[in-house]
Design a protein around this nucleic acid. Structure first.
Lengths: 234, 234
DNA sequence: TGCCCACATTATGTCATACATAATTCAAGT
DNA sequence: ACTTGAATTATGTATGACATAATGTGGGCA
């Protein structure tokens, strides 16, 4: 135990680069100073003076902040605080080919979790127009999916609408982001081969459940609807 | 419609900065060349030559890639491809004080969704040791929470363990990330004031459900357990 | 007066160069 | 065989210069 602590403390020699520290400092500074969205932050030159590092370092740190959407900078105007868009940040690293298999698989699972859990929000916030739209989507579905591709498109349309109904933008963005991954995993050899492809609760069935208005029933219905996916990972 | 299209096309004058484009190019290059985790990418000088821009620009682009965890660079060795850690990316922008209220609220909802949806994975992967640990946690809970703070700590411990059981690292990391947000939202004035604080399914009750082995029952149990939170947003 | 144009100003964007630093290689020396 | 240390190399940091775009400003003109 003691030796572990020793190693731990040895590891803490602050291996972070100067830019790392400046970045951290900047964030702390903004919070401390109570900067709000829309406020302009000091210029690069001022920060350089204040922190005693080169403008290069300041710039690289600001670049990171800009990247995570914390600031937005324009020429002459300087940089202003913005509200970070979480999903935009992820988008870039969310490339299926760049992620390793286990991460991909975990993301696949997360998507399933999210969709089951959002039943309550659907029930609470669905409007008659939403239901009509869902029905229209189902109606446009072919009896027997002609092509695999078409089938997937239908899936995306229907489930996308479900996310839509929750009115949760962050959730929607996540869905948009997770979709390519989900599809990729679905088709790749990461999971077990698709076996039965039995038909469980259908889209039409889900609509019925939504109309009935019971969150619990809908929740379990969605779970059932996703059974084919679950069969492949459990 | 036409005018909208016009505006759309006008907006597409490529307002992106040079660094933006280089970044994109680099990612495409890596994918195209089929770089795998562990491969070293060309040096900054080589990239500078190949792309015909200054090293500064290359560096800023690489900085971004490094930031999203796509590459990891060491002196002398150069930069190597790594598997991006999605959550590490988010961590920085996930500062409650930096996000606006509606986003915070949406994250709050997402966390609830996730937790309900993971019932299946818990049931599937729980071990006797896990259950013992859960019971130990519950045992250490005071009859009546002495302090609000202590109560929260207990919550975190128990629910953290639930995430743990799923064995899904990405999910766990998300939980870790969402926690501060969740807590912040919980205490801030964003949501309705906490009203009744009735006791629904308890932690002990959840353990029972886990032991019973029905994913559906557990799912609904978790939903019930979180009722206090739902009451505040619906 | 009030509007408009040209110029100055200013802060970010890009470039080039130099040096610092750390990791690796490799050969000399014990 | 092992260590030591210098050379090498790629990233890290610093600095100065110029480009570019947005804003501010003042003079000229109707």
């Amino acid at each position: 135990m003691k030796s572990i602590n020793l190693i731990e403390s040895l590891r803490n020699v602050d291996t972070s680069s100067l830019v790392d520290r400046v970045e951290k400092n900047l964030i702390e500074l903004f919070i401390e100073k109570g900067f709000k969205v829309g406020d302009t932050i000091p210029t690069e030159l001022e920060l350089k003076e204040a922190m005693g590092v080169s403008r290069t370092v300041i710039r690289e740190a600001l670049l990171r902040l800009r990247m995570i959407g914390l600031i937005d900078s324009k020429k002459r105007r300087g940089a202003v605080i913005t509200s970070p868009d979480l999903t935009a940040v992820l988008q870039k690293s969310m490339n299926p080919q760049m992620l390793d298999d286990s991460t991909l698989r975990e993301i696949f699972e997360m998507r399933l979790s999210l969709e089951i859990g959002m039943a309550d929000f659907i029930i609470q916030r669905v409007t008659p127009e939403d239901i009509a739209e869902l029905k229209a989507i189902v109606k446009s579905e072919p009896k027997k999916a002609k092509t695999h591709l078409f089938q997937i498109e239908q899936e995306i349309k229907f489930h996308g609408k479900l996310y839509d109904i929750t009115g949760n933008e962050t959730l929607k963005n996540f869905q948009k982001m997770l979709l390519p991954i989900f599809d990729y995993v679905h088709q790749s050899g990461i999971l077990k081969k698709q076996i039965a492809l039995k038909q469980f609760v259908s889209h039409a069935g889900l609509i019925e459940l939504i109309e009935k208005g019971s969150a619990e029933k809908l929740r379990n219905g969605i779970r059932n609807h996703l059974e084919n996916h679950f069969l492949r990972i459990l």
